[in-house]
Design a protein around this nucleic acid. Structure first.
Lengths: 208, 208
DNA sequence: GTCTATAAATAGATAGAC
DNA sequence: GTCTATCTATTTATAGAC
């Protein structure tokens, strides 16, 4: 049972949240269970009581992350809007999931860098499901004569990569700012709208 | 003196190459100096002889990486092609640097995820220099009446993110393939040309 | 469910011979 | 420049009391 306004966070949930932040900031290998326990204000032994090991805890977080994104995308793909609406909805879904779980973009970047070492069958299904659903939206648009056929992986990369990069690089951009680098500022809404427009432009064949 | 066809790799260069691969695969914290030494077929103590510490070795690799990319981009920005040529050249430069140094995309993703913890002043200069040069190319195109003014960071993210993602996710895509996920295949050239076309479309105002 | 104390393994780093 | 042996700190994990 997830915590609500009336049920305070139990030790399990507090550890889960602290671990997500720790893994995002330091990666799997760099994450420290003592630090997780301290941040959660829960005894370290509780990690092993609830999650069995650092690795299983990490996998749990990965699973939760991609399951949530998959569900969110499923709603968009299954809605009754136009293909254009669904593309916009897909971009917005990824962005708002990234915002709701700040650990999502950094953990995903690290997982990509690591070649998906920790990606088990369940996560793999969620991941490919997301691509399949995007491919379905494109197919729908093509069938309706509104989209050009474009390799779904090109479209996928054109959305996921910059959205994740925007959120994951927040810390680095601030750091560069303080180093005196005059990097133009970016706003969330600006980025989302840009990617929506570009993706639709690609699919509607405005670039040829 | 860098190694050439006639000068075989010294222990320093062998360690450098092995370390780059190790950091790419496991991250800074996850990298293991014993493994680096073994992969380089060089004694572990030589790491400390040549580089002083694991951290300094890592910074050296970061520096080298961004310095090379910066130089490459400088050549493109300073060439005498049209702004369109330079945009295409910029994309190609990033892609071919990523290909020449397979450790570049994964290390960069990890560094972004970590908020640039290991980014020192020198690397910060190279990084912001790359953005400035891209901004300069855009400005040039705007001045010539060929480009619309677009926030350089939007353009930058639209290039760097998907190019890095394409190269960094190679291992993960293979992994998903073997998990039975039917993910469409992507070819390097296809990706580069797509991003070139999209970026020019954005700058030439084809999307409004 | 929670906590203390500690086992057991790993890994960064160095001394010192050659 | 290279190598062996080793020191030391860190860290995952568990046993066992409450």
């Amino acid at each position: 049972m997830p915590p609500t306004a009336t049920t305070p966070l139990g030790s399990r949930d507090k550890l889960f949240a602290a671990a997500a932040a720790e893994f995002a900031a330091h990666g799997f290998a760099g994450a420290n269970v003592d630090r997780i326990a301290r941040a959660a204000a829960v005894n370290k032994a509780m990690i092993y009581y609830h999650f069995e090991s650092k690795a299983k805890l990490y996998r749990q977080i990965l699973c939760d992350m991609f399951h949530a994104v998959g569900e969110r995308v499923r709603i968009v793909a299954g809605s009754d809007g136009t293909p254009e609406d669904k593309i916009r909805g897909f971009v917005e879904a990824i962005a708002s999931e990234a915002e709701a779980r700040p650990h999502f973009p950094p953990i995903w970047f690290r997982e990509v860098a690591e070649g998906g070492t920790h990606v088990d069958e369940e996560v793999a299904r969620d991941l490919s499901g997301i691509v399949q659903m995007l491919a379905g939206i494109i197919q729908e648009g093509v069938g309706a004569g509104r989209f050009q056929p474009v390799n779904p992986m090109l479209v996928h990369g054109g959305i996921i990569a910059p959205v994740m990069m925007f959120f994951a690089s927040k810390g680095l951009r601030e750091r560069l700012d303080q180093s005196g680098a005059r990097i133009p500022h970016l706003e969330r809404q600006q980025v989302v709208e840009h990617i929506q427009r570009v993706t639709l432009g690609v699919l509607e064949g405005k670039l040829s």
